[in-house]
Design a protein around this nucleic acid. Structure first.
Lengths: 253, 253
DNA sequence: CGTCTAATTGAAGCATCTCAACATGCGTGG
DNA sequence: CCACGCATGTTGAGATGCTTCAATTAGACG
C-alpha cells in the first residue's frame, strides 16, 4: 500500500529484520546471525485496527512486526484507552509472553501490517544454544523499560506540547535505528486519537497542540507521514535526550 | 529504626533475599539456590534521601535492596520530579546497568536502607553457569515492565483517587509476595510528596485525595505505616487486578 | 456522490495546579 | 526538658490546562 519513497513497502524476512533490530541493540556474531536465520517463522498479514493479542491470552509463539505499525494498549473501566507503547518493524510486541504466560495487555495494528510468528519452543531452543542471544533480547526489554520510564515522565510531568514533541523525536530516532527513516522523515500512520491515547490527552487537545507545533514550524504531519522540519527545535521543545534509547548506531539511508 | 512488629528490622542476607524474591517470580532449583548463595555481596547502609545511582553513572555492580525503601526517578527541566518505580527489599533497582552501561535514571533511598552490591562480573558468571537463572531475572524485568504499563494507565487515564488506591494495592501485594506484609499492613515511609511525584500529581491534591480515601474508610496511613482497612473496597476503588504482577505465590506471615 | 473516518472548531466546565499561609510533629542542642 | 528548627502535613482561594460536549468540515474510497 506504500508507494512512498520510504522503504516500508519492501517487507524483509522476519530473520533479516530481527537481525537488523538486534544489530541496533548490540553486537551480533556470525554464529548468532546464522542461528537467527535458521528460525522458523510463519507470515501473517492483518488490516489496520485488528487485535493481535488480547488481555488474558496465552500465546505459544511470539510475533515479529515486519511492516506496518502496532501498539500495546489497555482499557480502563469507563472504556477509555491507554496506549503503552508503539511498535515499529523489527519489534516483538508480545515478547513478554515468552516468560509471562498470560498477557496483561492488548496488541493491535494501527495500520495494515505484516507479522511473523515464531514458536516459543524455537526461541527457547535458540536461547539454550546461544545464551548470549538471550542477553541481547533481554537488553532489548531493558531498553523498552527505559522508554516506558520516559513516557511516564512525559505523561506525569510534561505539558501536552512537550509530550507530543518528545513522542515524535523518539519515533524518528527509533525508525532511524532500523533504517526506516529517510533523514528526518518517517512513515507514521497515527491518528490524532492514537496520539491522545498514548499521551493521556483528549483528541481535541491533541488537535490544538498539533496546530501549535506546526505553527512553530517544527514538523509537518499528514497523510501518514511525519517530517521534522526543524530537528534541533523539535528536540528542544520535547526536552528530548536520546540517551535512554541506548541505540548502538544510527543507520539512516 | 523499626521497632514495629513488622519484620523489616531483621535484615536478611542479600543471597537469602534474592532467593526469596526470585522464588516469588518462579521456581528455583536447589542447584540455583546454591549458586545464588555463593554470590559475593558487599553490604552498605544509607540514610533516607540519599542518591544511590545518578543519571549518567556507569555502575560496575548491581545493588540489592535488603531493607528500607528506594525509588527510581527522573527530573525534568523545570526541576519537577517523576518517580518511575518504588523498590522494596529483594528488588534490584539498578539491574538495567548489567546490560545498559549508562544509567538513564536516578535511584535514591526514601527511608534509611540497607543495600548489598554484587559485581557485574559475578552476575554474568552466574548467568553463564546457569542460564535458567538469567531467564528468571529476565522474567523479573518483564514483570517490572508490566508494572510500568499499569502506572502509565493510571497516570494517563485514571483519577487521582483511583491512582492512589491502585498504588497502595500494588505495594501491599508486592510486599506480601516477599513476606514483608502482616495481613494488609505494610511499612510504608512514603511522603505525600513522594506519592505526588510518583503519580504525576501535586502534593496539595494528594493531601486532599488522601483525606477522601481515609474518609471512605479504605485505609489508614501514618507514621510510616499503611493499613488497608477494607481490602475489597480498596481494590475496587483502585480498579486493581493483580494479574499484571504475575506473582507465583502469596506468602503472608 | 454518498458514506465513513479523521480532523477541526467553539464554548462551557472541572479536575487539578499554584501560591501562600499555617499547623504539626519530631529530632537536636543547649 | 525545654526551645528552636526543619520537614511534613493541612487548608483556603484563585488560576488554568485540559476535558467534555456538540457541531461542522475535510478527505478517502467504492
Amino acid at each position: 500500500m506504500g508507494m512512498t519513497e520510504l522503504r516500508s513497502e519492501v517487507s524483509d524476512s522476519a530473520q533479516e529484520l530481527l537481525i537488523r533490530k538486534l544489530g541496533s541493540i548490540g553486537e551480533l556474531s556470525d554464529r548468532q546471525r546464522d542461528a537467527l536465520h535458521r528460525l522458523e517463522a510463519a507470515r501473517v498479514s492483518v488490516n489496520a485496527h485488528t487485535d493481535i493479542v488480547r488481555e488474558g491470552d496465552r500465546p505459544s509463539s511470539i510475533t515479529v512486526l515486519l511492516a506496518g505499525l502496532c501498539c500495546r494498549y489497555k482499557l480502563v473501566t469507563d472504556g477509555r484507552r491507554q496506549i503503552t507503547s508503539f511498535h515499529i518493524p523489527g519489534d516483538v510486541p508480545d515478547l513478554p509472553s515468552l516468560f509471562l504466560s498470560v498477557a496483561d495487555y492488548n496488541v493491535c495494528s494501527l495500520a495494515p501490517s505484516q507479522l511473523a510468528a515464531i514458536p516459543h519452543t524455537a526461541m527457547l531452543a535458540l536461547f539454550h544454544e546461544q545464551p548470549d542471544l538471550a542477553h541481547l533480547f533481554w537488553r532489548g526489554t531493558l531498553i523498552e523499560a527505559a522508554i516506558f520510564r520516559e513516557w511516564m515522565v512525559g505523561i506525569g510531568r510534561r505539558s501536552a506540547f512537550t509530550r507530543i514533541a518528545h513522542l515524535f523525536c523518539e519515533l524518528i530516532v527509533r525508525m532511524q535505528a532500523v533504517g526506516l527513516a529517510s533523514g528526518y522523515t518517517i512513515e507514521l500512520p497515527l491518528t490524532q486519537t492514537d496520539i491522545a491515547d498514548a499521551l493521556g490527552l483528549s483528541t481535541v487537545h491533541v488537535n490544538r497542540t498539533l496546530q501549535e507545533i506546526r505553527a512553530a514550524a517544527l514538523i509537518e504531519l499528514g497523510r501518514g507521514k511525519l517530517v521534522a522540519r526543524d530537528w534541533e527545535g523539535l528536540c528542544d521543545a520535547g526536552e528530548f535526550d536520546q540517551t535512554y534509547l541506548h541505540s548502538q548506531r544510527i543507520s539512516c539511508r
